[in-house]
Design a protein around this nucleic acid. Structure first.
Length: 462
DNA sequence: TGAAATGTTGGGGCG
DNA sequence: ACGCCCCAACATTTC
């Protein structure tokens, strides 16, 4: 009987996995392989790396229950694959397609020398599946999403019979014992459980509650989707089912807006595939020469959550503490770095990639370019978030701020988004003296806004 | 997936 | 009772 290698990259699941099914087709025995590529060594110690190791450990456990195991090797993927092919007598390698420039170069090089078959994608549809009538890629989200929704999803995923090879005779590295991040247990079962709970309890109010930083209205599925512990297709089937069975307009709106978020993932994967240069520079050529400020002090204040703007600081500290940040807070903190501090969006992009457990090159880049107003279908450059107003709208009582900025815990709601306006006496009484216990705002927002508008305007006129 | 500036309207105070 | 003014509330325009 023939064997095949299932080369696991970002599809760390047994459920609804096109590459795994392709490997197992025709009764082939499957060798599950993960390669620790030295190209990603710089990720070590990040929440993403921790999540990855925990997920692999769990996947190994799941395979052991089937009498097999996960084979883990470190090294150049081409060399490792060559070795494992020889040792296992496998005839072919199956893997999920990946849109990142590095992965495409790697896979193309390997495909020239080894029988590598790419199938499926980390998104619902691969990047060339939804194109304009003239064959070119969409660059406007609404048009893309309309076309996306018209593409048939295929059959809902079902349980598939899988035969894994007892892989004990293949050498494998022992994974370091890595406990899961407390908020994100890295197991496939946890991903499924979250999906069920979200669809049963949260999706109906998602349209409204996902905006609220003080509530847990989001799906909290992002790391599971990023590493493929949850199939994006399965999530979309769940969203469609929730929309169809919605009891009222509001819950239908909730399911629809969640589906929209899932489509954004595909959109940015598609954008990165067709415009790989976005990882290096702005999508919009007319906004590549912005006269950014360079201020190490301001950048560090932003990174450490010490800007003196409560929602901004809350978001940045939530990120540092948990590896995750509420989506609304991502937009607010990003807008603040780019517009208020006028620091290059690429600095923020890098920081988020280092700290987010769900950090995804395509989505993260898309989000930052959107905020900076330099990307596809981006927010217009003159759209500047006012951190105080955003706080008042999406954290009305200030609970999110108090949770992540403990020195503001005693500040009353009236001042929670502008604590510097408290009378000195009140500051003393609350033991929250501005400039001592909590920083003074690093910029005047109104002035910073004017400065950003002027600098962007100048860049456009060049 | 904004916010500020500017314009318009209409109710009510007041001479 | 009338006209004038003020300004809050809302709408529109502008960045």
């Amino acid at each position: 009987m023939e064997n095949a290698i299932w080369w696991i990259r970002r599809d760390q699941r047994l459920d609804d996995n096109a590459a795994l099914l392709a490997a197992a087709a025709n009764g082939r025995g499957v060798i599950a392989l993960f390669i620790l590529d030295p190209a990603f060594d710089s990720n070590r110690g990040t929440p993403r790396h921790t999540f990855l190791l925990a997920a692999l450990t769990h996947l190994d456990g799941a395979l052991r229950q089937r009498g097999s195991r996960l084979v883990v090797r470190a090294g150049e993927p081409l060399e490792v694959l060559r070795e494992v092919l020889a040792e296992s007598k496998a005839a072919a390698i199956y893997a999920e397609g990946d849109v990142s420039p590095y992965a495409r170069r790697r896979d193309e090089a390997i495909g020239k020398q080894l029988p590598l078959h790419l199938t499926g994608s980390a998104g619902v549809f691969p990047p060339a599946a939804v194109l304009k009538a003239d064959g070119r890629p969409y660059t406007v989200f609404t048009a893309y999403s309309k076309a996306w929704r018209a593409v048939p999803l295929g059959l809902p995923p079902g349980a598939a019979p899988l035969a894994f090879l007892p892989a004990a005779r293949l050498d494998s590295l022992d994974l370091p014992n890595t406990p899961s991040l407390s908020l994100f247990p890295a197991t496939e079962g946890e991903a499924q459980r979250r999906l069920e709970v979200f669809c049963a309890e949260k999706v109906g109010t998602y349209a409204f509650q996902r905006e609220r930083m003080d509530m847990e209205g989001t799906s909290q599925l992002s790391p599971y989707l990023h590493f493929g512990l949850l199939s994006a297709r399965r999530a979309v089937f769940a969203a469609r089912r929730a929309a169809e069975s919605a009891a009222d307009g509001e819950s239908r709106r909730g399911a629809e807006s969640w589906l929209n978020e899932l489509i954004w993932r595909d959109f940015y994967q598609m954008i990165l595939y067709h415009f790989p240069f976005v990882l290096k520079t702005a999508f919009r050529a007319d906004l590549r020469q912005i006269n950014w400020r360079e201020s190490e002090a301001d950048q560090r204040a932003w990174q450490s959550g010490l800007t003196g703007f409560p929602v901004v600081d809350a978001g940045m500290r939530q990120l540092a503490a948990t590896g995750w940040m509420h989506n609304r807070a991502r937009m607010i903190t990003a807008s603040f770095l780019v517009k208020d501090l006028l620091i290059n969006w690429q600095e923020g992009e890098r920081w988020f990639m280092q700290h987010l457990v769900d950090g995804d090159a395509a989505c993260n880049n898309g989000g930052w370019q959107w905020t900076a107003g330099v990307g596809t279908d981006a927010a217009p450059y003159f759209r500047v978030f006012n951190p105080r107003l955003q706080g008042e709208k999406f954290d009305p009582q200030g609970d999110y701020v108090r949770r992540w900025v403990p020195e503001l815990a005693r500040v009353p709601g009236q001042y929670i988004h502008q604590p510097e306006l408290m009378a000195e006496r009140m500051q003393t009484e609350l033991k929250c003296v501005i400039g001592r216990d909590y920083p003074r705002p690093v910029v005047d927002h109104a002035q910073a806004r004017q400065r950003a508008l002027a600098v962007y305007k100048a860049a456009r006129q060049k």
